[in-house]
């Protein structure tokens, strides 16, 4: 039960991070480092992309 709750929470927070990063990049802003980490993206490498 607890495990199931945990994996759902983790999936939801990944989804939330993906949406946050998407909306930041849409507006040409640098997304929050925590969101990027959640998605397994290296923030320094991500910021090298010309948005």
């Amino acid at each position: 039960m607890h495990r199931a709750y945990h994996s759902i929470a983790s999936a939801l927070s990944t989804l939330r991070a993906a949406i946050a990063v998407a909306s930041a990049t849409e507006a040409h802003r640098h997304p929050a480092a925590a969101d990027l980490r959640r998605l397994g993206i290296d923030a320094t490498k991500f910021n090298a992309i010309h948005l």
Binding site: T14, L15, A17, A18, I19, E26, R38, L39, G40, I41
Partner: peptide
């Protein structure tokens, strides 16, 4: 948009 799925896929 479509970009959300791309980030999830990468993760």
């Amino acid at each position: 948009g479509a970009e959300i799925g791309t980030f999830l896929s990468y993760a």
